[in-house]
């Protein structure tokens, strides 16, 4: 489950999931929801492999979202579906989506960057919760 939350001039992304792997996938979907008006308009037509090293879960989440944003910015690909495996040393993921098509994907915001501010990955109520603030 994911949602966007208020942060004055910016936006917050929040996700909850039973496992860390699903949590990272949900945060990928939350990022998409901040970028496009209708996330369901993005089809899983291309797939890309993403590998990120890092032991700190919060920095790993930051790097994960940053990588998805960078791929949109430089390759114009929007990602909608994710299989993520988080290990003690990093993550390995397959992200599926499609190139941005102006006729079908109305962009909602230009996400400038992911921030460290109040970045969170915590265990809660037998599951996991993540939060990140993105700069608009």
């Amino acid at each position: 489950m994911h949602e966007l939350f208020d942060h004055t001039a910016d936006l917050g992304l929040r996700a909850t999931a039973p496992t860390v792997n699903e949590l990272f996938a949900e945060m990928g979907r939350a990022l998409l929801a901040s970028m496009v008006e209708d996330p369901s308009s993005v089809r899983a037509e291309v797939s890309e492999r993403i590998e990120i090293a890092g032991a700190d879960r919060e920095y790993l989440l930051f790097d994960w979202l940053k990588e998805l944003l960078l791929r949109f910015e430089t390759e114009r690909v929007l990602f909608a579906e994710f299989d993520v495996t988080v290990s003690a040393t990093g993550l390995s993921a397959v992200a599926r989506g499609e190139p941005h098509d102006e006729s079908r994907h109305a962009l909602a915001h230009e996400v400038k960057a992911i921030t460290y501010h109040e970045l969170k990955v915590v265990e809660r109520d037998g599951g996991w919760l993540a939060e990140a603030i993105v700069d608009i």
């Binding site: 942060h7 004055t8 001039a9 910016d10 921030t115 501010h117 109040e118 603030i133 700069d135």
Partner: peptide
Amino acid sequence: IHWGYGFCI
């Protein structure tokens, strides 16, 4: 001034 991230705006 308003609430930012790190520094205030």
